[in-house]
């Protein structure tokens, strides 16, 4: 028996919107402490890891660990039928080949249930070791999205370099080059507007902008994004989900020329 009631149902809608274009199908792993998902994109270049802890739910019941394979496109279609203010409940029964999403309007005058077919997904689970990163940049998520979008109109790859001067995003393409430098800026009215650079050692790595732009679909989940880099490790682009968990995107670097 599985029953998860999320008062802020829009969070789940936003989570799906942030990952559905990157990953087609994924296993949702439910346990008593929350649910998680880990999946690579079809070309095995990026990996998404999602965690939503049970504390974030108004009601959370998971009698035993269970894994449900879902097509994220289909799940997104169903969740789009929930209003932004709706309470969303996920329900499942042991051994069932379906999952039910229940949507309740805030005033309880409209209740809908959508039953979705589950699927068997044969997916690899990767071990992600704890790492000490050379540099961790925390910045406004909207600014990061803007930079990725702007650079993608010039080139296909971005070089992200962190030095004590700041963080530099560079690209080059047929029409020319672009460099955007952000300096550490903590003298802002709101903490979420700050750019904070923690650097142990300078680092410079190259990534495909197509993936970075896909990650920025998680921007509505969080005002800030954290970018963690070490040479010869995938970059981690993390969007924290308030009080509940995170969506993390891992992207393998390009080889340096």
């Amino acid at each position: 028996m599985l029953e998860l009631r999320l008062v802020q149902g829009s969070l789940l809608k936003k989570v799906l919107e942030s990952i559905k274009d990157l990953v087609n199908d994924a296993n949702f792993d439910f346990s008593s402490s929350g649910f998680s998902l880990q999946s690579m994109d079809s070309s095995h270049v990026a990996l998404v890891a999602l965690l939503l802890k049970s504390e974030g739910f108004e009601h959370y019941r998971c009698d035993r660990n269970t894994s449900m394979g879902m097509n994220l496109g289909n799940m997104s279609k169903m969740l789009k039928c929930a209003g932004n203010d709706d309470i969303i409940t996920i329900k499942g029964d042991d051994g069932s080949d379906t999952v039910t999403f229940m949507f309740e309007s805030p005033t309880q005058d409209k209740i809908a249930d959508f039953e979705m077919k589950l699927m068997d997904i044969d997916s690899e689970h990767l071990g992600i070791p704890e790492a000490e990163y050379h540099a961790i940049v925390k910045m406004p998520s909207a600014e990061f999205a803007r930079i990725c979008k702007d650079l993608a109109s010039i080139g296909d790859t971005v070089v992200i370099s962190v030095t004590k001067e700041g963080v530099k995003f560079s690209t080059r393409g047929d029409i020319g080059t672009a460099n955007i430098v952000l300096r550490q800026n903590t003298t802002v009215d709101k903490p979420e507007d700050a750019t904070v650079i923690e650097m142990n050692e300078p680092v410079s790595m190259t990534f495909a902008l197509r993936y970075m732009n896909s990650f920025t679909k998680a921007t509505p989940l969080s005002n800030t994004v954290t970018i963690s880099m070490s040479p010869d490790l995938p970059v981690v682009v993390e969007y924290k989900i308030a009080e509940m968990g995170y969506v993390r995107f891992y992207l393998a670097p390009k080889m340096e020329e």
Binding site: S43, V45, L47, A252, M255
Partner: peptide
Amino acid sequence: VNPQRQITAFFSTT
């Protein structure tokens, strides 16, 4: 063009 590496080159299957 910089060749793209894969995630599986960094993280192993559990």
